[in-house]
Design a protein around this nucleic acid. Structure first.
Length: 692
DNA sequence: GTTAGGG
DNA sequence: CCCTAAC
């Protein structure tokens, strides 16, 4: 055949049309079998990449300290709070009445990102199904025409869905964000990953005895709030996050343990290569397709090993995996995902159980029980009155901790949700859903990833003076609570990055640089902060007045006892408006240019003239010699590759077979379609004969 | 780089 | 149109 080919060319590219060639179809379909394998590989690679990145981040971050002191350092910003912690540690009963909201402890990122992630994921898959299932087999083959259109429309739908999804996620958060945390904690137990629990307990132990731990947690409103978050991640993926947060934010001695354990869980041997992935990933993403492909292959060997270890690190993992267009429709099928999914389901179940939201604290089971009782305790004044914010104050809190507090003048608060910085994401339409997810995750992580701090808004105004007593600030018993809300914000101390601005090359520029597509202008410049690396964005957020205004409000409802459950603290990331809008802005990769979805070629429907030329050529050359067809009939049509011609022929054949009503796009003269069918039949026959 | 097919 | 496998 080869020889023949060459000879033909020698003759000016014209050969005996009737010279059928052996179809390669003999190869049969190979896709199915290998796909599974390959998919896994992809998944692993991607996961590994991400995981590696995360891991590296963790590593790069200040190593966990052995004592609370570290956590204090982390908190940095609020000295008083730090002291608080120390005190607690040193003396069992001391400082309980103090306001010990160590912001450092507050790290909702996990929960949030997790939540969003899962949500996105969940929804993203839906559209897939929709698009994949052509109403009829006929329609299916018509894809070339309709597919593109359909595909695009699908994409659009996806987007909207995602938006909804996000919205839903946000809603969920509002309703019972914490619940997710609780669910998570449950997951953990169920999964038998008690290592973490142990670690937690140990941590608690460090603080003192269990009671101490209890108290500690109770004492620190933030802690309470946070707890769910910490545990929030799914057993598999969570672990890493969990430790990640802890290590970075809390620097508990045990973190290490947790980390190791987590790592070991799946496979310990691989922790080694984890450092690579991050950089590699970036490179990969930037590479041209072929390069990319190759890269992935090359990497796969290395990364695969690492992947398992890091998997959990990447709460993100799934995002990344899905981000690859290559994975479209094919999803990872390894257990991990299933695990996650199941976790998610469980979590969902818990979503409506606000009570549990508080459970599953850092300290584990013990805490979980008291959690419902514990709420937010705020210090009213110097008198050390502790405010048991819980709706229907918890007996526990009162009984155990409140011994130090005066029962009077307790401000009862029920935090329904936290305001988080507005999340604005900008992403090209051509970006994959996966990249979208990742982007969102990054944004959220960036915002809350560091050591987020809690802001208090009273009547819309930020209460900045931490030294003020609640009373002084105007937060008093039975008053103004409606105007009290909390915000979750990046810790300024952590990030000394310039305030975010739309011009910020870091995220705006880099983010989408590779993407030629027009971007949706950032909705709110302030939002840019979100895009930044977690810690860095802090300052900007703090600085930005809009932050406070735009952030989601978590109005505090004077809690009524019966509402306790319903009023569970919720961490909510509520998109200001439409999710899609909100998502409009985050850079696809603030740090690395990700969004490397190679621009999809513009759709250029075949004109009738082109179809005719194609038909003519195929009639002459037959099917299976697309390169020749291309040369013969589309030599000058740069945008028509022989693959395109082949595809077009495929669709033409299909089109010719379906009823005219089912056809879409510019109608092709029936005459041409008839010729298509005849030519197709003719050449098929010749082919068949040859095979015999 | 081509061809064949699935997505 | 995209992506791959098999050539």
């Amino acid at each position: 055949m080869v020889l023949q080919k060459r000879l033909d060319y020698a003759c000016g590219g014209y050969r005996a049309p009737a010279m059928p060639h052996l179809p390669r179809s003999a190869r049969g379909k190979r896709s199915a079998r290998k796909k599974v394998e390959d998919n896994q590989t992809y998944a692993f690679d991607l996961l590994a990449t991400i995981a590696g990145k995360l891991l590296s981040e963790i590593k790069s971050s200040p190593s966990p300290c052995t004592s609370t002191g570290t956590s204090n350092a982390a908190a940095g910003r609020d000295t008083a709070k730090q002291e608080q912690i120390d005190e607690e540690k040193s003396s069992k009963c001391e400082g309980f009445d103090r306001l010990s909201c160590n912001e450092a402890v507050f790290s909702p990122e996990n929960a949030l990102e997790k939540h969003i992630t899962s949500k996105l994921k969940e929804t993203s898959n839906v559209p897939k199904d929709t698009s994949s299932g052509p109403a009829s087999p006929f329609i299916k083959s018509d894809l070339s025409d309709e597919d593109t259109i359909g595909g695009e429309s699908n994409f659009g739908r996806d987007g909207s869905r995602i938006g909804h999804a996000v919205g839903a996620a946000a809603e969920k958060y509002i309703k019972g964000n914490l619940s997710s945390g609780s669910a998570e904690s449950y997951d953990r137990k169920e999964d038998g990953s008690k290592k973490l629990s142990v670690a937690e307990q140990q941590v608690a132990g460090n603080l003192m005895d269990k009671n101490a731990a209890y108290k500690y947690s109770l004492d620190d409103p933030m802690v309470m709030d946070v707890k769910p978050t910490l545990v929030s991640s799914d057993s598999s993926v969570e672990a890493p996050l969990y430790r990640n947060n802890i290590s970075r934010n809390y620097s508990f001695p045990k973190q290490e343990d947790g980390l190791d354990l987590a790592a070991d869980k799946d496979d310990d041997e691989n922790s080694s290569g984890c450092t690579h992935p991050a950089p590699v990933a970036n490179q990969t993403s930037r590479m041209p397709r072929i390069g990319d492909r190759r890269m992935r292959k090359l990497m796969s060997s290395k990364l695969r090993k690492v992947a398992p270890t890091v998997l959990r690190d990447a709460g993100t993992s799934n995002y990344d995996v899905e981000q690859k267009p290559a994975l479209r429709g094919k999803r990872m099928c390894y257990t991990r995902q299933r695990t996650q999914r199941s976790s998610f389901k469980r979590r969902k179940l818990f979503d409506h159980c606000p009570l549990t939201a508080y459970d599953g604290g850092i300290y584990g089971e013990g805490l979980s029980k008291m959690s419902e009782n514990s709420r937010i305790k705020l210090e009213t004044d110097d008198s050390h009155a502790t405010l048991c914010g819980a709706n229907g104050a918890s007996s526990f809190t009162t009984g155990q901790n409140c011994c130090y507090e005066s029962p009077d003048y307790h401000v009862k608060l029920s935090i329904k949700s936290f305001k988080v910085p507005e999340l604005v994401i900008e992403i090209p339409e051509t970006a994959t859903v996966g990249s979208l997810k990742r982007t969102v995750l990054e944004a959220v992580t960036a915002i809350l990833g560091g050591r987020p701090r809690v802001g208090v808004l009273l009547q819309g105004k930020k209460v900045r003076d931490d030294k003020k007593t609640l009373r002084q600030a105007g937060i008093t018993y039975g008053d103004k609570l409606d105007n009290l809300s909390f915000t979750m914000e990046p810790n300024p101390e952590e990030a000394l990055v310039p305030p975010p601005s739309s011009e910020d090359a870091n995220f705006l520029g880099l983010a989408c640089a590779p993407e030629p597509l027009a971007r949706i202008p950032p909705i709110a410049p302030a939002a840019a902060a979100l895009d930044r690396g977690g810690p860095e964005s802090t300052e900007s957020v703090q600085t930005c007045p809009e932050m406070d205004r735009d952030a989601f409000h978590s109005p505090i409802h004077p809690s009524s006892p019966e509402k306790t459950t319903a009023n569970a603290l919720a961490l909510v990331a509520v998109p200001p408006t439409d999710v899609e809008e909100a998502l409009a802005m985050v850079p696809l990769g603030s740090k690395a240019k990700r969004s490397e979805t190679p621009q999809r070629r513009v759709r250029r429907p075949f004109s009738v003239a082109e179809v005719e030329a194609l038909v003519l050529a195929v009639e002459k050359l037959g099917t299976g010699r697309w390169r020749d067809v291309k040369i013969r009939a589309f030599e000058n049509a740069e945008h028509r590759t022989y693959v395109d011609l082949k595809d077009k022929w495929k669709t033409l054949v299909h089109t010719a077979r379906i009823s005219p009503q089912q056809r879409r796009g510019e109608p092709v003269p029936q005459e041409l379609l008839d010729r298509v069918l005849s030519a197709h039949a003719s050449w098929s026959q010749k082919e068949a004969k040859l095979l015999r």
